[in-house]
Design a protein around this nucleic acid. Structure first.
Length: 730
DNA sequence: ACCTCAAACATTTTT
DNA sequence: TGTTTGAGGT
């Protein structure tokens, strides 16, 4: 044990050993954060803490898995397997499966991904006959999601005139109705979306003291990784859980906060300090990953952010190579440049990553990699579980496990074709709505010969009843028989396998292969679990899986978004598409957004160990059209300070210092983004503020949660600061 | 009920 | 550009 601890530097060691009270570790990129966390876990267990009493929350399933393995290795036993380690969502899912009966859910409830939610919302908007211009499904689902991430239920929203006013004045009077119906639908379907996993956990802990007490006592030590990316709901839940023991350690880096679009709140770090005045803070500033030049570049860039905790990342590593900045004529040429440089550097392909802002940017890169015969793997995009054929099968599985899951029912009731078309489904859906019942219950009534007034011909009736009886049969099987057996039964009986075997095109064969792979996956999980393994276990196992969790050991270049690259490192990193409108993205216009985009670039740069290549194109195909683009302001920023960078003009293949690139008209644009977004505590009574809807007003009181403002034209309003984007006027 | 084709539409980032 | 929706025909 001590042997491992001695591999730590002084700062790391201190952070590892401090376990008696709240602590916050600010860990810069490459500062050995994972090492500190794993050591801390091992140290805790080694010093007698029961692994059962530890909760460790990580950002991805992958890092949870990695941590488990490392701790296991250090302790040379699998004792740490009793520790609850995983993402917020997966740990809360686990809690909900145990406790959900208190809030009237069955333990077999389904998890809806964002696609499922959007489908439901689309249907609701259609049912209500609302104008699609005012109620865009994307917007509505985003809005519902952020309300939930701020623990605002539809009832709470409904009771808050200020919150409603914003939507009403924008002409969305029916938003509340959509929100309400959506929640009702999810409940009827015995389903929760991603946000419900947080919201319902919170409700459970808030409304049932004995449950809160149970978990407060279970989790005597709490570790939270990537704390800068937690949202309000997550923050509140951890806060509640840690109330008694206060043995909570959060690790994060405000400079790497890149998920505010998902409700992540940089203020959580500030809140932490306030909630635990006796906390201890550790800063890990030594970087073990990158060369001096790479780190200098990163530091120069992040200097431009005002909103940050002061720290200076440094390294003892060697000076390293210059940063290369490539300028290409087009996105196509950019891809070609990257492919060529990969060949030229000639490393193991696993040591390359190509990072970009948006998924669709991968296309031009892929094209040139294929042309040059460079194998690659893409993270993101369509994952295995998002393929049509897999979703079809999973829909059968899910409906088998949870008969109320209407999303799955809709997907498969007529696949393979049972001559149950749109109109028939529509009729049943309306009938169910009328009787305040569900489609499943309606089908059940039909099969038990109850009289239902539905104008359907007998052929359709039998078809529906047959479908009901088939699923019902599967459900009974699934209760007693093992997953592998039930799965193959479903494939046979449903006619799915026959349907897919009909397709003899190459794509069809790939689909069949994928299905095979899924079945193998079930077998594998089943044999790994050792004991009984039911279909419901399989579904709960994969519900929160993402495409990044799959293993792939072949030698390939990695392509992914910058977001997905967080926490990883590569010897050679390419960051492509460094253009205005891409990084920073088009939609980020205010200063807060720009700062987040800058942090995003910061994350990208700091993934590199030895070689960093940045690239932008002068023309890019944007929805089929050739559009002209300008280099990102960030490219200019990294040159503010040091001459670390070389620019290559792809056309003339000439190398020159980037300083030679005139710092042209950009200046104007940059100054426009100077504005005042402040930390919550900076809003003081007496300050003048401006609100989008209410205009100018004076703050009367600010108690962090709520802020009372007296508006000139609207009078006194109570606003939630984390919602209302108030601008300080000075 | 289903197939076909043309027009409209959409573009952050993820659990 | 690639995908989804709606109209119209079978």
């Amino acid at each position: 044990m001590e042997k491992h601890l001695s591999e730590l530097n002084k700062d790391q060691l201190e952070a590892v050993k401090y376990n008696s009270g709240p602590s916050i570790i600010i860990a810069g990129p490459g500062s050995g954060k994972t090492r500190v966390l794993t050591n801390k876990l091992a140290y805790l267990i080694d010093s007698g803490v029961n692994p059962f009493n530890i909760l460790a929350l990580t950002f991805t399933n992958k890092s949870a898995k990695e941590m488990k393995n490392r701790v296991k290795e250090m302790l040379q036993s699998s004792i740490s397997y009793n520790t609850w380690m995983g993402t917020f969502h997966s740990v809360f899912y686990k809690i909900l499966r145990i406790e959900c009966e208190r809030i009237n859910y069955e333990p077999n409830f389904t998890i809806y991904d964002s696609n499922d939610s959007k489908n439901i919302i689309k249907r609701i908007i259609k049912d209500l006959g609302l104008n699609k211009d005012f109620y865009k499904p994307n917007f509505v689902s985003y809005k519902i999601s952020s309300l939930k991430n701020n623990l605002i239920t539809w009832q709470k929203y409904n009771a808050n005139p200020e919150l409603k006013l914003e939507d009403e004045s924008a002409g969305r009077h029916n938003f509340i109705e959509i929100y309400k119906r959506y929640q009702k639908k999810c409940f009827q379907n015995q389903a929760m979306d991603f946000d419900d996993l947080l919201l319902n956990t919170y409700i459970l802990l808030k409304d049932f003291p004995e449950i809160l007490f149970k978990y407060q006592n279970k989790f005597k030590h709490i570790l939270v990784d990537e704390y800068q990316d937690t949202n309000y709901a997550q923050y509140k839940i951890i806060n509640k859980l840690a109330e008694i023991h206060e043995n909570i350690c959060v690790v994060g880096d405000d400079s790497q906060s890149i998920y505010s679009f998902r409700g992540a709140n940089i203020h959580n770090i500030l809140n932490f300090k306030k909630d635990y005045p006796n906390h201890k803070m550790f800063k890990l500033e030594q970087n073990y990953r990158s060369t001096k030049k790479i780190l200098n570049t990163a530091n120069t860039l992040i200097e431009n952010n005002k909103n940050k905790i002061e720290k200076k990342i440094w390294t003892n590593n060697k000076e390293g190579e210059d940063i290369t900045i490539n300028q290409s004529e087009s996105d196509f040429e950019e891809g070609y440049f990257v492919a060529k440089k990969i060949k030229q550097l000639n490393f193991n392909l696993n040591e390359y990553a190509i990072l970009y802002r948006m998924h669709h940017q991968s296309r031009s890169i892929e094209e040139s990699l294929r042309r040059e015969n460079i194998p690659y793997r893409i993270y993101g995009g369509i994952s295995f579980y998002e393929r049509k054929e897999i979703k079809d099968i999973l829909a059968y599985f899910k409906l088998t496990i949870n008969n109320h899951d209407e999303e799955s029912l809709f997907r498969i009731i007529n696949f393979p074709s049972r001559l149950i078309g749109k109109t028939t489904i529509q009729k049943i859906a309306i009938k169910a709505e009328e009787q305040n019942s569900t489609i499943w219950d309606l089908l059940k009534d039909m099969s038990s010969n109850k009289k239902i007034e539905l104008k359907l011909n007998s052929q359709k009736q039998t078809s529906l009843i047959k479908f009901y009886e088939m699923i019902n049969f599967f459900s009974i099987q699934a209760k007693n028989k093992q997953a592998t057996e039930v799965a193959s039964q479903i494939l046979e009986h449903s006619g799915l396998l026959r349907e897919y075997k009909k397709d003899i095109t190459p794509e069809g064969k790939i689909r069949l292969k994928n299905i095979e792979e899924l079945i193998n996956g079930i077998k594998e999980m089943s044999s790994m679990s050792g004991e009984e393994f039911y279909l419901s276990d399989f579904i709960s196992e994969i519900s929160l899986m993402t495409n990044q969790d799959s293993d792939d050991y072949e030698e390939k270049v990695t392509l992914m978004t910058i977001h997905a690259s967080k926490g990883l490192e590569f010897k050679n990193v390419f960051v492509v598409g460094l253009e205005e409108g891409l990084l920073p993205a088009d939609k980020s216009q205010n200063n807060t957004d720009i700062e987040e985009e800058r942090r995003l670039f910061y994350v990208a740069i700091t993934r590199a160990i030895e070689n960093l290549t940045l690239s932008y194109a002068r023309f890019r195909n944007k929805w089929g059209e050739r559009t002209n683009s300008e280099p990102s302001r960030f490219v200019y920023e990294i040159n503010q300070n040091k001459n670390n960078a070389n620019i290559i003009d792809e056309k003339y293949k000439k190398y020159k210092k980037i300083a030679a690139l005139e710092l042209q008209p950009k200046e104007k644009k940059i100054s426009r983004f100077k504005s005042t977004i402040e930390a919550i505590e900076n809003y003081k009574a007496g300050d003048l503020v401006k609100h989008n809807k209410f205009g100018i007003g004076k703050i009367l009181e600010n108690n962090d949660e709520k802020c009372i403002v007296d508006f000139k034209n609207f009078g006194k309003k109570t606003l939630l600061l984390r919602f209302a984007k108030l601008k300080l006027l000075k």
